[in-house]
């Protein structure tokens, strides 16, 4: 992947997302986990870095303190939906991506690896 700024990709209507639940989407060939909470939209990599399995979109969404989280469905580590940082394993993180809703459609723009 190169350093060029990426484009926004339209993924689906907002109504396809249930509050408190994730879905998986393919954006430029990358598996992205999209989440909708009561107030917000989040996008992170779908890949669970601990097990190398593409399942984070199927985790349970919640909060830890004031941090919005998703818990890996395999071994339950929680990730900060805003930053992709794993809250249970220091040094572990997934990429987060930009996400927005325009005219009822959810759009995602991939971010390069930090």
């Amino acid at each position: 992947m190169t350093g060029q700024p990426r484009e926004w990709t339209v993924v689906c209507p907002l109504t396809c997302l249930d509050p408190g639940r994730g879905v998986a989407a393919l954006v430029d060939g990358v598996q992205v986990a999209l989440f909708r909470t009561t107030a917000d939209l989040f996008a992170i990599d779908n890949r669970d870095p601990v097990t190398d399995t593409y399942v984070l979109s199927r985790g349970i969404v919640g909060s830890r303190g004031s941090v919005p989280t998703v818990a890996s469905p395999l071994h339950k580590q929680a990730y900060d939906l805003r930053t992709g940082d794993c809250l249970d394993l220091p040094g572990v993180a997934v990429r987060w991506h930009e996400v927005r809703c325009r005219a009822g459609l959810v759009e995602v723009r991939l971010r390069e690896e930090a």
Binding site: D18, G20, T51, Y54, R58, I60, V61, P73
Partner: peptide, 21 residues
Amino acid sequence: GERASLQDTNDHFLANLQRDG
């Protein structure tokens, strides 16, 4: 309804998640 979002992935897909997804 809202109840679907409470289920862990096994109950959500009415099947057992395996190690490879």
